[in-house]
Each structure stands twice: as structure tokens, then as C-alpha cells.
Design a protein around this nucleic acid. Structure first.
Length: 303
DNA sequence: AATCCACGCAACCGCAGGTCA
DNA sequence: TTGACCTGCGGTTGCGTGGAT
């Protein structure tokens, strides 16, 4: 795969953007849209490479960018999503309207990572660091894949307990609509779940650390399968759900691998789940999805 | 007042994947 | 099927700024 160097031309400007350049870029995009980023600089009269223009636009000039400090809620969400997604900043950013992946990446590297370290939590694995052997997360398994499975299993059981306790359909009014799960199950994603027992392929290559990806996707699909099973009385959902829950609740690495390929669309569907600020709120706990013992990510740690 | 240093943010770099001829 | 082109993403760097000494 050949790839043309982006900024191989001499005479292209680098470094900080001037207000004049910003104006040109904004004016051009407002008039014409960005079209091809590669040709944009020439058309807009900028001595920049297209990549630089795109970055400037997406990270700074875009009108829907929310500027200003992150709120505690946003920070909590970033941490929770990072526990699920790992360093997939774009995916995390997509759940925080107005925030860019760059911004979140910076937030993580400059603030959140340090805070977690101070709390004795390894920011990469979200488990207790060696310096905090008695940390509250020490009860979790040490192998990343096992630990993630355990985390999601814990979340699953929590949700299961809550749902059976309530044994009521999920009510709208800020809560997920019951139909959502049915629709989910009957969707293409649900189809993926239904096919899980038939030897779907697995994607083992990913830029994301294996631990985070394994845990996130397997857990994600587990949750969806469970909820679909519990919240829908649709007859067609019974068998596949049972199958799926069985697969999802398996704690060996095989089931993890099988579920791993539920794909980005699955993840996206979960992340697009209709809730307020906390994507995991449907698991029952509103301030944290409780993969960790209470208080780990409580507000007080991030104020 | 001058210097040093740590921090935060904007921007760059290189890779990966998708599209299209 | 192949390769060029394009975009998006994550990691990293460098500079400006403010606080500490």
C-alpha cells in the first residue's frame, strides 16, 4: 500500500495557526464544505497541508466544539469509557458531544491518568497498581482478559439481579425504552448474536490492547444479550438469548474470543444507547457502572 | 527580577484501513 | 487483484504559560 507523504512539499507552513489562516479555513469550509482535504488548502489559499487543515478544523475550528474545562461528569464518563474501550479516543470522544479525541487524549494524559495513579489504580488496566497492593480492586483477577471477563460478568449479574428485582419493563422517562432491546435484538447486531454459536470469525488484530478490547466487546455483547433476554418477551428472542447468555457468561477465554468479533457496530450500538450522560446507567447504578467496588470512581475523587 | 521547571495544549507524525480506478 | 489516494486515528513532540525558587 503506497501512501503519498502528506507534507512533502516544500514551502508548506507548519506550526501554530494564525488568526488569518483560521479565518480563511473557516470561511472556505462554511462556503464550500471541506470536500477533499488534500485539495482544500490550495483552494482556500492556505500554505498548509490538507492534513493540517483537517486537524485544525476538527480539533479547534468546528462550530460544535465545546470549549472550556471538563465537568466532573465528563471526566467520570471518560474514565468509565476508557476502562471499556482503552485508548480509543475517537470512540470515547463520540460519546462526549463537543469534545474532540485530541482533547480527551490530553485530558487523560495530563489529568486523569495521574489521578488514577494517585488513587493506586493502574490507568492502563484500571486495576490496582503494584504500589497499592491493598487497593480495593485487588479482589479482581490479575490476568487482563480474565479480569475484564470478571468485570463484565459482575456487571451482568448486577443488571440481572436488578432486572429480576424490578421484574418490570424498563420505563421510559429517562430510562431505556423496552422496545430498544427488542429492536436491538432484531437488528443486524442481534443477528450477530444469534449467529454466535455458528463459528463466527474472530478479529484478533487490533491496535487496541488485547485486554481492553477483549473485555470491552465481550462484555458489551454479554450485556446486550442479557438485557435483550430479560427485557423482551418476544418468542424469537428466547432461544438465541439463552444461547447467547450461555456463551457470554462463559468465563474461559474461548467465549471471549467468540464474542470479540461482535464488532464495532455492536459497540457503537451500545454506546449509542439512549441514556442521559452515563452510558452505563442502564446497568442500574447511575454514578458508576459498578464494575469496581463502590467509591472507586466516586465523585469525590475527581472534584 | 531572573531563572528554572512542570504542566497543558495544539499540532505533527506515521500507520492503518477504506475507496476507487 | 493491485496500487494510488484519501481520511481517520493514536502516539508523541514542542512551545507557551504560570508557579516556584
Amino acid at each position: 500500500m503506497g501512501r503519498a507523504p502528506c507534507c512533502d512539499k516544500k514551502g508548506l507552513k507548519k506550526g501554530p495557526w494564525t488568526p488569518e489562516e483560521d479565518d480563511k479555513l473557516v470561511e472556505y469550509i462554511n462556503k464550500n464544505g471541506h470536500g477533499s482535504w488534500r485539495s482544500l488548502p490550495k483552494l482556500a489559499g492556505l500554505l498548509r497541508c490538507g492534513k493540517s487543515c483537517r486537524l485544525r478544523w476538527t480539533n479547534y475550528l468546528r462550530p460544535d466544539i465545546k470549549r472550556g474545562p471538563f465537568t466532573p461528569d465528563e471526566e467520570k464518563l471518560v474514565i468509565q469509557l476508557h476502562a471499556i474501550l482503552g485508548n480509543r479516543w475517537a470512540a470515547i470522544a463520540s460519546q462526549l458531544p463537543g469534545r474532540t479525541d485530541n482533547e480527551i487524549k490530553n485530558l487523560w494524559n495530563t489529568h486523569l491518568k495521574k489521578r488514577l495513579l494517585l488513587m493506586g489504580i493502574d490507568p492502563q488496566t484500571h486495576e490496582p497498581s503494584a504500589s497499592a497492593p491493598n487497593g480495593p480492586m485487588n479482589r479482581l483477577p490479575s490476568s487482563p482478559s480474565t479480569r475484564h471477563m470478571a468485570q463484565w460478568e459482575s456487571a451482568r449479574l448486577e443488571a440481572e439481579a436488578r432486572l429480576s428485582r424490578e421484574s418490570l419493563p424498563l420505563i421510559p422517562s429517562g430510562k431505556p425504552e423496552p422496545d430498544f432491546f427488542l429492536r436491538l435484538w432484531n437488528s443486524e447486531v442481534g443477528e450477530t448474536f444469534r449467529n454466535l454459536g455458528h463459528g463466527e470469525k474472530t478479529d484478533t488484530q487490533s491496535p487496541v490492547s488485547s485486554s481492553s478490547k477483549c473485555g470491552s466487546l465481550s462484555g458489551t455483547t454479554t450485556e446486550i444479550g442479557l438485557i435483550a433476554a430479560d427485557s423482551s418477551a418476544a418468542p424469537e428472542s428466547k432461544k438465541p438469548c439463552n444461547e447467547y447468555v450461555r456463551a457470554g457468561t462463559g468465563t474461559d477465554s474461548c467465549s471471549s474470543n467468540e464474542l470479540e468479533d461482535s464488532s464495532e457496530s455492536t459497540l457503537q450500538l451500545l454506546l449509542d444507547f439512549p441514556s442521559n450522560n452515563n452510558d452505563m446507567s442502564f446497568l442500574g447504578q447511575t454514578d458508576c457502572y459498578s464494575l469496581y467496588p463502590p467509591g472507586i470512581y466516586a465523585d469525590s475523587h475527581f472534584d
